[in-house]
Amino acid sequence: MRLCLEARQLACERDDRPLFGQLDFALGSGDIVQVEGPNGSGKTTLLKILSGQLGDYQGELFWNGVSLRQNRDHFLANLLYLGHAPGVKAGLTALETLAWYQALAGDIPSEDTSLEALAQWGLAGFEDVPAHQLSAGQQRRIALARLLLQPRPLWILDEPFTAIDRNGVALLESLIQAHANAGGCVVVTTHHRLDIARLGRIRLGVTGE
């Protein structure tokens, strides 16, 4: 199945400040793209546009050939977006958070797959601990467990490596590589140097050096 997220003449201006212009690219199966650029160059804004959160941009975005604005719900069903904040409620336990995310996405929640995903992320034994007792890194791992739990072709990850220790980073890189090999597509922003073979780059904030 060919999945393709294509941008044509994508441009965005926030508060009269042009962030990027004439951005053209087509992401297909197996693509891993890192969005780079200095702070404030619009990386998060670009990710928000690609994930359909921000509609205020010039140019067109196509998902499998159909404009994003037409079939937004279908696109959202195929997207897994992890933002700056992990999105883990302090009052809920890891299992409850994952069950909530599965219900939101329309998946059938199954406890054992959640447990298995949490175990793979090193959270065995912490499944029923309210998140406010966990460290920031562990809360990030709960959010990252969704990568295993919810199979989605397109991953958009905004600074996923924050607060993650070394073996967490290695695990995440292997997951990203495995997802791409299986035909998925990953867009990621990070200041961490990714140890990934075929890494595409989108550099923002390049002012004609």
């Binding site: 042009p18 990027f20 212009g21 951005l23 297909g28 989108i202 550099r203 390049v206 004609g208």
Partner: peptide, 22 residues
């Protein structure tokens, strides 16, 4: 006004990318 250029360098996967090469 200085519109920052965005440069795109997608790694050419040896096998599947040919068709999508626009």
């Amino acid at each position: 006004r200085q519109v920052p250029k965005a440069s795109v360098t997608l790694a050419q996967a040896p096998t599947t990318q040919a068709t999508l090469q626009t």
